[in-house]
């Protein structure tokens, strides 16, 4: 498959996260500990590789960064001390900052039941 390389993407993700994506040694500790990994279509460390490759288009088609709920399990276990949750956040923000919402506010029919902090948290992570 041909990858359209977006060379500024890596730079942007590193700038927003303050973390070095290139420091990753693909050991897979993040994926091994991630409680959501079964729901992700691409493993976290694979996302790292795609960021390095500048495959922004490919990443945006994956659900990995949206499934990540910033539980910080990977961040505390990474042997390279990469705060992976921050990198996932940076990837989310590259899309959200284009004023795109990943959750349909008007389509939610369960708000009455939910505790407020769930709604606040969801909108912080998924609305632009």
């Amino acid at each position: 498959m041909k990858v359209k390389r977006d060379l500024e993407f890596l730079e942007k993700v590193e700038e927003l996260s303050g973390e070095s994506v290139n420091a990753c040694i693909r050991c897979g500790t993040c994926s091994a500990g991630c409680p959501f990994v079964e729901e992700m279509d691409v493993l976290p460390e694979r996302i790292f590789k795609r960021i390095v490759l500048g495959d922004r288009e490919g990443i945006m088609k994956n659900n990995t960064m949206w499934i990540c709920a910033a539980c910080f399990t990977c961040s505390v276990r990474c042997p390279r001390d990469i705060d992976i949750a921050k990198i996932m956040e940076a990837v989310r923000l590259t899309l959200l900052r284009e004023d795109i919402d990943m959750v349909d506010l008007d389509g939610l029919d369960n708000i009455e039941e939910l505790p407020q902090l769930a709604v606040v948290g969801c909108f912080r992570k998924e609305t632009g």
Binding site: D106, L108, I111, Q116, V120, F123
Partner: peptide
């Protein structure tokens, strides 16, 4: 009866 009446109709207040 409902805790979240305002949030339910205007969910964007959570933003």
């Amino acid at each position: 009866e409902k805790d979240n009446v305002l949030l339910d109709l205007y969910p964007e207040i959570a933003r």
